[in-house]
């Protein structure tokens, strides 16, 4: 009876330890900004990373027949990366949406092959009549901090 509980405890402690270790090691940064990713593209191209930014308006292209999606990921300043993805996009992936793309960056830093796309939205909750009060700075803040 006692042994069962001790085993359970050890398993849980191992899980917590394991989670912390994996999280710290692989995701010392959860996602890179486009500028960081481009600057370190040489080393980062070796492994799968996440890059977070916004969908540059006018660049979102989706072909349903071939399931190919592409858009430009931008930090709204100088850094831009072309993202390519095979599959259906998340529902909320639109122009100017925040997105965290998971995949591999090319050594040049100009192209990113995404295996997963995650839409990142701001902390705002607005009824349609308050849409003028939406503050784009909030999304930028949480994407491009540090």
């Amino acid at each position: 009876m006692e042994r069962k509980w001790i085993i359970g405890l050890v398993v849980i402690a191992a899980c917590i330890g394991g989670i912390s270790f994996i999280t710290m090691r692989q995701y010392s940064v959860y996602f890179y900004t486009p500028q960081e990713a481009k600057a370190q593209a040489m080393e980062l191209s070796q492994k799968e990373i996440k890059v977070g930014g916004m969908v540059k308006p006018g660049t979102l292209r989706w072909e349903a027949t071939s399931l190919s999606l592409s858009f430009v990921l931008t930090d709204l300043q100088a850094a831009e990366i072309e993202v390519q993805y095979h599959g259906s996009p998340p529902d909320l992936l639109k122009e100017s949406a925040g997105v965290v793309a998971q995949g591999r960056i090319a050594q040049t830093g100009a192209l990113f092959h995404a295996v997963k796309l995650m839409v990142k939205h701001s902390e705002e909750y607005k009824v349609p009549k308050d849409q003028h009060a939406i503050n784009p700075a909030l999304l930028k803040q949480s994407l491009f901090k540090e």
Partner: peptide, 24 residues
């Protein structure tokens, strides 16, 4: 969500930028 970069958005309540419509 404030200290690190996360997918989850920052807090909506107790936020100085008042991001929620009062109806919500």
């Amino acid at each position: 969500v404030t200290w690190w970069r996360t997918l989850h958005q920052p807090p909506s309540l107790l936020s100085p930028s008042a991001p929620m419509s009062s109806e919500i």
